[in-house]
Design a protein around this nucleic acid. Structure first.
Length: 937
DNA sequence: TGGGGATTT
C-alpha cells in the first residue's frame, strides 16, 4: 500500500465492495427491526473493517448470534472460496442457530449450514457455517491457517469452555500469520458479559487490545428479591416454601427453580405435587379444577394486593445509620428489599414466614404442573417443559444448572434461586475427583435471574441475603483452570506447539496441571521423554517442551482422552480393535446406566424400581461372565452392554428393560462409528467395520484386552493392601495407589467389588464417603514391568537367566527385577531390552563375535583368538582386542543390529580392523572379502 | 456397600 504522510488522515479502510442482497420475508424484516443489535450494525461493521479482532458484548436477547453473521454476509465477507465460521459451545446451539439464520435469510441449509461431531449439512455452496468449538479446533489440525474462512466468530466466549480458550489462543496467532500473507482473517469474539479483561488486558494474547462494542439487550426487567436471612443448609425446604407462596399469591406465570442435583430435583417435585395435586386422569374434574384454579388465582391476587397495602413501609426503630457494617448492614439491605417489594412487587413474601408447614396440606384447588429438568433426563421428558402447561395450571420447572445456559424454558416469570451449584473438583496432584455444592458466582446468579425476563417482566427470589451475594465470586473460574489438561496438551503438541507454557492462553492452567499432563503423555509414549538427567523435577525447567512422538501423532487423531487413544493405538493385534473401540466409546460416554436409586412415590413404583434394579444387577453379572472374562471386570460389563444392546438393534425397549440410558447408547453407537473411521484412516489395512452382531471376545482376546486396558491406565494401578497393613481397620478391603496415602476402595457397583483382586487398574477415583475406584479391571503382576516400564524402576540386569540376543529385533535382551514407582511394590523379573550403557556394548560384542547377529561371522567363531565371553570378564582389559572392539562400537553407538548396519552404511570398512584383531593374520584377507558380513550364506 | 453437573473432538 502507498505510504501516506503522517499528518494525513488514515487511508480509507478497504471495505468489501460487494453488498450481497438478502431476500428476507416482510415478517422477518419486521421481527429483526425489534432487535437492539440492528442499531449497532454500522458500528460493528466499521470496527470489523478497521480492526482484525473485535469484541461484541451483548446479553442474551440482543440477537448477536443470529444477526452478526448476517451483517458480515451482506457486507461481502463470504465469497466463492471463503466462508464465515461461527463456533458455539454446544451442539444443539450450532444446529439451531444455523436453522434460525437460514430461515431469517430465506436461504437454504446448503448455504447456511452446520457441522457438529457426528453430522453436518455443509456443502460447496455453504457461506455461513455454524459449528461446535471442538470442530473448529480439529479443523486447525488439518489447515492451520484456516484458509477457507474470511471471518471466524467465537460465540459465547464468556462461557470460557476449554475449546473456546484454546481457539482464542490459536486464533490470535493465526490472525497475525494471515495478515503477513495478505490474506487477512477477521476474528469476532462475542460475549454475553462485560467480563472481557482476560481478552483485552492480556498482552500475550492480543498485543493491541481489541475494541469492545456493547449492545443493548431486549430483556424485560427482572426484580430481584433477596432473603433476609440465608438458610444454613436446608435450601430445598426454603425453595419449597417460596414456590408455595409464589403459587398461592402471585399472578399467572411459570416458575423456574434452580437446585443442584437430580435427587434434590425429584424430591422437591414430589413435595410440590403433593402440596398442589393435579389430577390429570380425570378430565371432568380437571375442568372444575381449572375453573377453580383460576378463581383461586384471582382470589390470591386480591389477597396479595391487600397484603401489599398493609405492608407499607414502616420506620424500623432498630435501623440506625451509625451502625457499623456487618449484621446491621445486612438487615438494612433486607429492609430495602422489603420496601421494594411493598412498593414495586405485588407479593409480600414475609407473610407467613412463621408457618413453615402451611404448604404441606394438599391444596387441590391450585394445581401446579411440576416438571423436573436436568441434563441426564430422557429427552422426551425434557421436552415436556417446552410445552404449554395444561389449562388452568401453572408451570413449575425444578431444574439443575442445565436451565442456566443450555436450555431456555418459555413462559417463566418467576425464578427461585437457591444460589448453589454442584461442581466437579479434581485434586491436582492425585487426580481424584469429587463433587461439591458451593455458592454460584454473581454472574451465574444474574444469568439465572435473567431467565425470568424472557417473555415479560419477572421476579427472581434469591434464597440468600444480599450480603452473601456480595461475597460471591464475580465470575466462575474458566473451565481450563479446573480440570486435567492432557487431552488439550496433546492436541496442541500435534499442532507443533512444543513450549506449551508460552502459549497465549486467555487464562493459563496451573503449572502443576501442565506438568502432570506432560508427564502422563510422556509415560504413554505420546511425547518424547526429556533427557534422563533432566527427568521429572527438571521437566518443569525444560519449559514443558517435550516434542510429540509418532505414536502421539496417531493418538491425537483419535477423538478421545489420551489414555483411551493409547488403548486404540495398541489394539491392532489379535483382532482386538472392535472390542477396544466399544469399550473406549462406552468409557467416554458418561452415565451408561439409568439412575434407579431414587426413592419411590408409591408402593407400585417401589416394586417396579426394585425389580428393575435387580434386573440390571443380574445383567451386569451376566455381561461380566465368569472366570477369565470376569477379570476384565467393569470394562467387560461395558463391552457386554454395548454388544448386547447393538445386537438388539439399540432399541429403546432393550435399553429400558436393561436400565441403559437410550441416549447414551446412541452416543456410543455414533462414537464407535467415528472411532472406526479414525482407526481406518491411520491403518487402512485393518479394514475395520462396525459389526452389529459382534461376537463376544475369545478367552485369549479378553486377556489381550486386559493388557491393553492396563497399558492405557498405567498411572491408575492399585494394589490390595497386604495383610501386615491390616492392623488398622480402615484398611479393610482397601487398595493402595502410588499417589495417595489414604486407602481407596472398589466401588460397590463394580462387579469386582467382592473379588478383591491383588492388582487392578481403574478408570477414575471419585471421593464420596470414601475414595472409590470405578471402572475396574484386573491386572496380573508379571504384566506390570513389561506393559508399564515407564512406571517401574528396574534393578541391574540379572546374570541368571543370562542376557541374550533377540534375532527379531536385533537388540540385546536381559531379565531385570523392578519396583513400581513411589510405592516400591516388588515386581518379578521380566525380559526387557538391555539398558543403555557400556554393558550393552559388551554383550552386543559378544553376540556379534559368536555369529548370532550376522551368521556369516559364525564360520569364524572356531578360529577366534579369545572366547567371545571374554568381553564380559572383569579381566577383559588384559586383552587389548576387547578394548579396541568396544571402543569402536561405542564410537559409532553400535549396540544393536540396526545401529551397526547404519554405521556400515556410512563406512563399509567400519569395524574390520578391530574384528581382525580377534583372528589369526592368515584369515584377514578372507574376512576382508566378506566385509561387511551383512548378507547371509 | 452406594450420592454424579454441565459441556465437547
Amino acid at each position: 500500500p502507498p505510504k501516506t504522510p503522517a499528518s494525513a488522515p488514515p487511508p480509507p479502510v478497504a471495505k468489501p465492495a460487494v453488498f450481497i442482497p438478502v431476500n428476507r420475508t416482510p415478517e422477518m424484516q419486521e421481527e429483526r427491526l425489534k432487535l437492539p443489535i440492528l442499531a449497532e450494525e454500522q458500528a460493528i461493521m466499521e470496527a470489523v473493517a478497521e480492526h482484525p479482532i473485535v469484541i461484541v458484548c451483548g446479553e442474551t436477547g440482543s440477537g448477536k448470534t443470529t444477526q452478526v453473521p448476517q451483517f458480515l454476509y451482506e457486507a461481502g465477507y463470504s465469497s466463492e472460496d471463503s466462508i464465515i465460521g461461527v463456533t458455539e459451545p454446544r451442539r444443539v446451539a450450532a444446529v439451531a442457530m444455523s436453522q434460525r439464520v437460514a430461515k431469517e435469510m430465506n436461504l437454504s441449509h446448503r448455504v447456511v449450514s452446520y457441522q457438529i461431531r457426528y453430522e453436518g449439512n455443509v456443502t460447496e455452496e455453504t457461506r455461513i457455517k455454524f459449528m461446535t468449538d471442538g470442530v473448529l479446533l480439529k479443523e486447525i489440525q488439518k489447515d492451520f491457517l484456516l484458509l477457507k474462512y474470511k471471518v471466524v466468530i467465537i460465540d459465547e466466549a464468556h462461557e470460557r469452555s476449554v475449546y473456546t480458550d484454546i481457539l482464542l489462543g490459536l486464533l490470535s496467532r493465526i490472525v497475525a500469520l494471515r495478515a503477513k500473507r495478505h490474506l487477512p482473517l477477521k476474528l469476532l469474539i462475542m460475549s454475553a458479559t462485560l467480563r472481557v479483561e482476560d481478552f483485552t488486558q492480556n498482552q500475550r494474547l492480543f498485543t493491541t487490545p481489541p475494541p469492545v462494542i456493547k449492545v443493548e439487550s431486549r430483556q424485560f426487567p427482572v426484580t430481584v428479591h433477596f432473603n433476609k436471612r440465608t438458610p444454613l443448609d436446608d435450601y430445598s425446604g426454603e425453595c419449597f416454601r417460596k414456590v408455595c407462596k409464589i403459587h398461592r399469591m402471585l399472578p399467572a406465570g411459570g416458575i423456574l427453580v434452580f437446585l443442584t442435583g437430580q435427587a434434590e430435583v425429584h424430591a422437591l417435585c414430589r413435595r410440590l405435587r403433593k402440596a398442589f395435586p393435579f389430577r390429570c386422569s380425570q378430565p371432568q374434574e380437571k375442568e372444575e379444577d381449572s375453573a377453580e384454579g383460576m378463581r383461586r388465582f384471582k382470589k390470591s391476587r386480591t389477597r396479595a394486593r391487600k397484603a401489599q397495602a398493609m405492608a407499607l413501609p414502616q420506620i424500623n426503630l432498630d435501623n440506625y445509620s451509625v451502625l457499623p457494617a456487618g449484621e446491621g448492614d445486612e438487615d438494612r439491605e433486607a429492609e430495602m428489599d422489603d420496601e421494594e417489594e411493598a412498593l414495586g412487587s405485588d407479593l409480600d413474601l414475609d407473610l407467613g414466614d412463621s408457618e413453615a408447614n402451611e404448604g404441606e396440606q394438599p391444596d387441590a384447588s391450585l394445581p401446579l404442573h411440576v416438571l423436573p429438568l436436568y441434563s441426564l433426563l430422557a429427552p422426551e421428558k425434557q421436552a415436556q417443559v417446552f410445552k404449554p402447561p395444561p389449562e388452568g395450571t401453572r408451570l413449575c420447572v425444578v431444574a439443575t444448572n442445565v436451565a442456566e445456559t443450555s436450555l431456555t424454558i418459555p413462559g417463566i416469570k418467576y425464578v427461585v434461586d437457591c444460589g448453589k451449584v454442584k461442581k466437579r473438583y479434581y485434586d491436582r496432584v492425585t487426580g481424584v475427583s469429587s463433587f461439591r455444592v458451593t455458592w454460584v458466582s454473581q454472574a451465574s446468579a444474574d444469568q439465572r435471574a435473567g431467565r425470568a425476563g424472557r417473555t415479560e417482566p419477572g421476579h427472581c427470589y434469591r434464597l440468600y441475603s444480599s450480603a452473601v451475594f456480595g461475597d460471591f465470586e464475580q465470575f466462575p473460574p474458566p473451565e481450563i483452570t479446573r480440570r486435567p489438561v492432557e487431552d488439550l496438551i496433546l492436541q496442541m503438541k500435534a499442532l507443533s506447539i512444543e513450549k506449551v507454557i508460552n502459549f497465549p492462553f486467555p487464562t493459563p492452567p496451573s503449572v502443576e496441571a501442565l506438568v502432570a499432563a506432560e508427564e502422563l503423555l510422556v509415560a504413554l509414549g505420546a511425547l518424547q521423554a526429556p533427557p534422563k538427567q533432566e527427568r521429572m523435577k527438571k521437566l518443569q525447567m525444560s519449559q514443558l517442551s517435550c516434542p510429540i512422538t509418532a505414536l502421539g501423532r496417531t493418538m491425537s487423531t483419535f477423538p478421545v482422552a489420551p489414555r483411551y487413544a493409547k488403548m486404540l493405538a495398541l489394539s491392532q493385534q489379535h483382532g482386538c480393535l472392535p472390542y477396544t473401540i466399544a469399550i473406549v466409546a462406552a468409557m467416554t460416554v458418561r452415565e451408561l446406566f439409568e439412575e434407579l436409586d431414587r426413592p419411590a412415590a408409591s408402593e407400585k413404583e417401589l416394586a417396579e424400581l426394585k425389580g428393575r434394579r435387580a434386573r440390571v444387577a443380574q445383567m451386569k453379572r451376566t455381561w461380566a461372565g465368569q472366570g477369565p472374562s470376569l477379570k476384565l471386570g467393569d470394562l467387560m460389563v461395558l463391552l457386554g452392554a454395548v454388544g448386547a444392546c447393538e445386537y438388539a438393534g439399540c432399541s429403546p425397549q432393550f435399553c429400558q428393560a436393561n436400565g441403559l440410558r437410550y441416549k447414551a447408547m446412541l452416543e456410543i453407537r455414533r462414537l464407535r462409528g467415528q472411532l472406526t473411521t479414525a482407526v481406518n484412516a491411520v491403518c487402512p489395512e485393518a479394514g475395520l467395520f462396525l459389526d452389529p452382531k459382534m461376537q463376544p471376545p475369545t478367552e485369549s482376546q479378553v486377556t489381550y484386552l486386559r493388557q491393553i486396558m492396563a497399558a492405557g491406565l498405567g498411572d491408575h494401578l492399585a494394589r490390595r493392601v497386604q495383610s501386615e497393613d491390616l492392623l488398622d481397620p480402615k484398611w479393610k478391603n482397601a487398595y493402595k495407589t502410588p499417589l495417595l496415602d489414604d486407602p481407596v476402595f472398589i466401588h460397590p457397583s463394580s462387579v469386582l467389588f467382592k473379588e478383591l483382586p491383588e492388582f487392578v487398574v481403574y478408570q477414575e477415583i471419585v471421593e464420596t464417603t470414601k475414595m472409590y475406584m470405578k471402572g475396574v479391571s484386573t491386572v496380573e503382576i508379571q504384566w506390570i514391568p513389561s506393559l508399564l516400564p515407564s512406571y517401574c524402576q528396574f534393578d541391574a540386569p540379572l546374570e541368571e537367566p543370562a542376557p541374550s540376543y533377540c534375532p527379531e529385533s536385533g537388540q540385546v535382551l536381559c531379565h531385570r527385577a523392578s519396583v513400581f514407582y513411589r510405592v516400591g511394590w516388588p515386581l518379578p523379573a521380566v525380559q526387557v531390552d538391555f539398558p543403555e550403557g557400556i554393558d550393552r556394548y559388551k554383550y552386543f560384542a559378544r553376540f556379534l563375535l559368536e555369529g548370532q547377529v550376522f551368521r556369516k561371522l559364525a564360520s569364524f567363531k572356531s578360529c577366534l583368538l579369545s572366547s567371545p565371553s571374554t568381553m564380559l570378564k572383569t579381566w577383559a582389559r588384559l586383552q587389548p582386542r576387547t578394548e579396541t572392539l568396544l571402543r569402536a562400537l561405542v564410537a559409532h553407538k553400535a549396540d544393536s543390529r540396526d545401529s551397526l548396519l547404519a554405521a556400515w552404511k556410512k563406512n563399509p570398512k567400519y569395524l574390520l580392523a578391530e574384528y581382525c584383531e580377534w583372528l589369526p593374520k592368515a584369515m584377514h584377507s578372507d574376512v576382508e572379502k566378506n566385509w561387511p558380513p551383512t548378507t547371509d550364506s
